[in-house]
Write a protein that binds this DNA or RNA. Structure first.
Lengths: 118, 118
DNA sequence: TCCATATTTCCAGACTTATAGAATTATTGT
DNA sequence: ACAATAATTCTATAAGTCTGGAAATATGGA
């Protein structure tokens, strides 16, 4: 991942409406949400929301797909993960003491795949 | 962590000079680097750099400490980690399939503490 | 006190972002 | 073709950011 792409993603998320949109779309994976409904749920005018969705799309964090009259937006979790990876490796490279507690913190919600016996 | 604080941190890192500063300071932990040297190494005028350092400081990502005539800046890795945790739990809550590969990706560089026998 | 060093604050200009009204485009049904 | 629905683009305004020259502030040494 290029640092230019990371900056684009960080800038996209560094705005409260857009952070809310991204969280909403993550919570609605894998179904996605039409643009109008996003605007309604977050109480933002449709055209303003359209501008925000365009920023998130350019940043690669969401992807639009037309379905009949609606345009369904979905979070691109792969892209988000690669941004997070860049950030953490940047920080972690040579400094395990930083990421180890983060992994410890994350593991309870994301258990590494195990054979089902416990 | 408040989402307001996260937005501040994301905005601070969403700028190439500041991302470079943060990376530099992470690589120079725990010694830190004086403001003037940061400016020199990144080829940015001192007053411009001062503005960027102020943004990073307000965001909680770095901390200044005066030592004689110099002001030494250090990365605040704890704060950075709590930003990363917020972002990933936001994404991860209920969706282990997102963070599991990230943990897998991170683990080689940040081995969980083990008794020394390997 | 006077000077040099290190950094910040003040200020202004250029640029970018956030917002939303009005108009436009795309799709579907009658 | 016409109307209704869904979303975007056009446009303008207000607000915020980035940059760096000039001035100001803090520190330490002679």
């Amino acid at each position: 991942m290029e640092s230019e792409a990371v900056i684009l993603a960080l800038a996209a998320l560094a705005q409260s409406t857009r952070l809310d949109v991204f969280r909403l779309l993550v919570s609605r994976e894998p179904t996605g949400v039409p643009a109008g409904e996003i605007a309604r749920e977050l109480a933002v005018p449709a055209n303003t929301m359209s501008a925000h969705l365009s920023v998130l799309t350019r940043a690669g964090l969401v992807r639009p797909e037309r379905r009949s009259r609606s345009i369904i937006y979905r979070a691109d979790l792969e892209h988000f993960r690669s941004v997070a990876t860049f950030l953490l490796k940047d920080c972690c490279g040579g400094r395990p003491e930083v990421c180890a507690p983060l992994i410890a913190d994350l593991t309870p919600c994301c258990p590494p795949k195990e054979p089902a016996h416990g």
